[in-house]
Amino acid sequence: MSSILIIEQILNGLQFGVMLFLMAAGLTLIFGVMGLINLAHGSLYMVGAFAAAAVAGLTGSFLLGLIAALIAAAFAGAIIEMVVIRRLYKAAHLDQVLATFALILIFSEGTRWVFGSFPLFLDIPDALSGPVTLPGGIQYPLYRLTLIAIGLLVALGLWALIERTRIGIQIRAGENDREMIGALGVDISKLYTLIFALGAALAGLAGALVGAIQSVQVGMGEPVLILAFVVIVIGGIGSIRGAFVGALLVGLTDTLGGVFLPELFKLFMEAGAAQKSGSALASMSIYMLMGLVLIWRPTGLFGART
């Protein structure tokens, strides 16, 4: 196995990781500030992808598609926050799980109703298609490299937003003591809607960006949602830094495991059996990673100690 392949796979893992981060950041922010488990986050990812595919299909511009994805997802997020989610902040986790599960059903079937069951396709813009040559002679798709860059930029932007702006101060204060910031004159319900819309926009962005390398279809959000859950459980629920580290860990484990575990098994098994058991183990590897992290630290890597 060549070092080129290894580097390629590491880049693939990074790309997957940063996209997971976009999903996980919103989830963990919403949980950290509002204490809400939002299963419908995957639906917002789907909404973003569909909005991008529809607008890019109409106008032929990928950039307009991305903007549409951000707006549609943020708008959908703000609406469900105001209509449904707002009533759930004080409810038990069970009610939150159920209500947001109900939202998934409504979003998925609603999208199927509007767009039909067939997948839509979103093309990579011409300017970003094709490979680039990296130092060391590695050919790598420019689009995937762009995704890594966008993901890292968003992470940086989010860090700046939370650590360096007034809204960030309010968000951090909201994580620590909701009642107190309300008493200090911050309009909590506006802040909550804003955070929810922000998280939704990030999910929509991820959906649109990934939509260009996969097909855009109903139900695309839930597998990513579950991985994002794994990410925030590993990172510690409520911690953005944890979400970042967790996302990269999960992205790399998933990608590298799928490639290298079968190879590893071939060292001491015959090829066919190694391929089978290797890929079976690889599909379980991130859950094992999560199990190990939780045995070591029951509240995740960066979670608050209880």
Partner: peptide
């Protein structure tokens, strides 16, 4: 599309 109705009832 009966899942929509199920979702609404559940909500």
């Amino acid at each position: 599309f009966w899942h929509i109705y199920l979702g609404v009832i559940l909500l």
